[in-house]
Each structure stands twice: as structure tokens, then as C-alpha cells.
């Protein structure tokens, strides 16, 4: 469904992506993990050309994603994106945020958009917050509105850019469970995350990226239990050590 062919990206002289190849099938959930600075977020942003690419190409449903213009807008409208910092429109209520895409981009009437938005807010468990402004919602609630907003476009593919990294720990669960439900419904998704437990549960395939390259790719059991590449092993064990450090003192 979406294919990256030798995608390259430079920030000045720094090569952030050194030729990424990836083929995501319809209904597949791909989770990208890796240390910060590995280029995983940049790669995600290259898929809908939020970040222009300096080499290679992205193919979405057999069509090359163009660098700009109307066609790019059209492709973007079919790819939902959820950001680390939610990026809800602060001057609109929750329901207006969700209605905005269908009205402005798809040209749907207000009435239908409202019905759809109500349905989606209920789906993410926020039916009662429709009239609240983003500033009146918790981070977890804001992120769930952002997911509803992306879903309102009826996307064929969803991109999640560290959707829980900006959340207080106790709010992470509610967002992850919404994403889990989407996975269960068969939504095609590419997710960049640091939540390893979640990655293990939800992914059909896990990708480990480091220094602008895909180091290792495979089924979650394989990556998490028997990583082949030393870099992957090192990364995973450093993360596990981090967890131990966090949990042990509290137990005592």
C-alpha cells in the first residue's frame, strides 16, 4: 500500500536518512523503534512529505507522492497523521477540530460532518467533551481528539509520530488503547514509539532504526526476544535497564 524506495533526507550536511526501503501492506501495523536522532520521526514525516525528500521516492497506492501541488494535498488527505504534541487547533472546540477536515478539505456539509465527528468522539471516549476547547482537556484527551480528527478524513493509512511521548505516564494508556482498537479494526498504521510493551503487542512488524538506516526488521517476538544485530540488542537492553531503574526504588 505504501512503499518507500531509497528515501534520503539531509539537514544541511547532516545525512538524516541514508536510503530507507520499506513496503507496508494493507492492514499491516508497522512499529518503528530506535534511539532519538535515528531518523525515525523524520522518515515518518517524509511519507506524507511534511519533510521534503532529497532522494528516492514514496509510493502510495501505486502512485508516486509528488513534491507539491494539488495532488500532494489529495494524497495527504488520505493519510492521517497524529503528532507528538497533538497540534489541535486551539481556537476551535473538540468537535470543530474533528469537523474541520471534512468541511474544509472534503467539502462536506456541516450536518454530515457533525454526525461523523460525534460518532468519532464517542469512539475515542470523548462524546461528553465535544464542546470543550483543547486548553480545557488533558493531554491524553487532546491526543484522542487528534486521533478522531485524523480519522474524520477516512484515511487509508495512519501515521503516529511518538503519540504518547508528551503525555504524563498515567495518560499514556488511554491513548494506546485507542490505537490498539484501530489496529484491531484493520487500519494500516506506521507508528513511531518508545513504548516497547505496546510495540510488542500491536505490531505485525517491528523496525529498528539507527543513524538513518533500518538496522533490523522482523516480527515483534523475534526483535524483542532474539535480536540479531548487536545495535538492536544494545538499544533494547539499555531501555530495559531504564525501566528497572525506574521501578525498583519504588518497590522498596
Amino acid at each position: 500500500m505504501v512503499k518507500a524506495q531509497n528515501v534520503q533526507k539531509n539537514f544541511g550536511k547532516l545525512k538524516v536518512l541514508k536510503g530507507i526501503n520499506l513496503d507496508v501492506k494493507q492492514g499491516e501495523v508497522v512499529v518503528i523503534i530506535g534511539p532519538s536522532g535515528s531518523g525515525k520521526s523524520t522518515f515518518l514525516r517524509c511519507i506524507n512529505h511534511l519533510e521534503s525528500i532529497d532522494g528516492g521516492m514514496v509510493i502510495f497506492e501505486d502512485k508516486k507522492v509528488p513534491a507539491k501541488g494539488k495532488e500532494l494535498c489529495e494524497l495527504r488527505s488520505q493519510i492521517g497523521m497524529v503528532f507528538q504534541r497533538f497540534n489541535l487547533f486551539p481556537h476551535m472546540t473538540a468537535i470543530q477540530n474533528v469537523m474541520e477536515g471534512p468541511i474544509t478539505v472534503l467539502g462536506k456539509c456541516k450536518h454530515d460532518s457533525r454526525d461523523l465527528a460525534e460518532e468519532l468522539l464517542a469512539k475515542v471516549g470523548l462524546a461528553d467533551k465535544a464542546k470543550n476547547f483543547p486548553s480545557q482537556l488533558s493531554g491524553g484527551q487532546q491526543q484522542r481528539v487528534a486521533i478522531a480528527r485524523a480519522l474524520a478524513m477516512k484515511p487509508k493509512l495512519m501515521l503516529f509520530d511518538e503519540p504518547t511521548s508528551a503525555l504524563d505516564p498515567e495518560l499514556v494508556g488511554e491513548v494506546l488503547s485507542v490505537i490498539r482498537n484501530l489496529a484491531a479494526e484493520g487500519m494500516t498504521m506506521i507508528i513511531v514509539t518508545h513504548e516497547m510493551g505496546f510495540a510488542r503487542d500491536v505490531a505485525d512488524r517491528v523496525i529498528f532504526m539507527d543513524e538513518g538506516k533500518i538496522v533490523e526488521m522482523g516480527a515483534p517476538e523475534q526483535i524483542f526476544s532474539t535480536p540479531r544485530h548487536p545495535r538492536t540488542r544494545e538499544f533494547l537492553s539499555s531501555i530495559l535497564r531504564g525501566y528497572e531503574k525506574m521501578t525498583y526504588p519504588e518497590v522498596g
Binding site: 506524507n48 511534511l50 494539488k70 494535498c73 489529495e74 494524497l75 495527504r76 488527505s77 488520505q78 493519510i79 492521517g80 497523521m81 503528532f83 504534541r85 497540534n87 489541535l88 487547533f89 486551539p90 481556537h91 474541520e100 477536515g101 474544509t104 478539505v105 487528534a146 480528527r149 485524523a150 478524513m153
Partner: peptide, 24 residues
């Protein structure tokens, strides 16, 4: 992030300006 959110939904630059950026 506001511009990014708007154009990632498929809005054109001018739609994003009109609906999202200028009102704020």
C-alpha cells in the same frame, strides 16, 4: 505544528492560512 497539522490533513497552504493560522 499548527501549519503541519493543517497541511497533513490535506489542506492547501491558503486554506491552512485562512482556517488555522490567521484566526489564531
Amino acid at each position: 505544528g499548527q501549519m503541519e497539522a493543517a497541511i497533513s490533513m490535506g489542506m492547501s497552504y491558503s486554506q491552512a492560512m485562512r482556517r488555522v493560522i490567521l484566526p489564531q
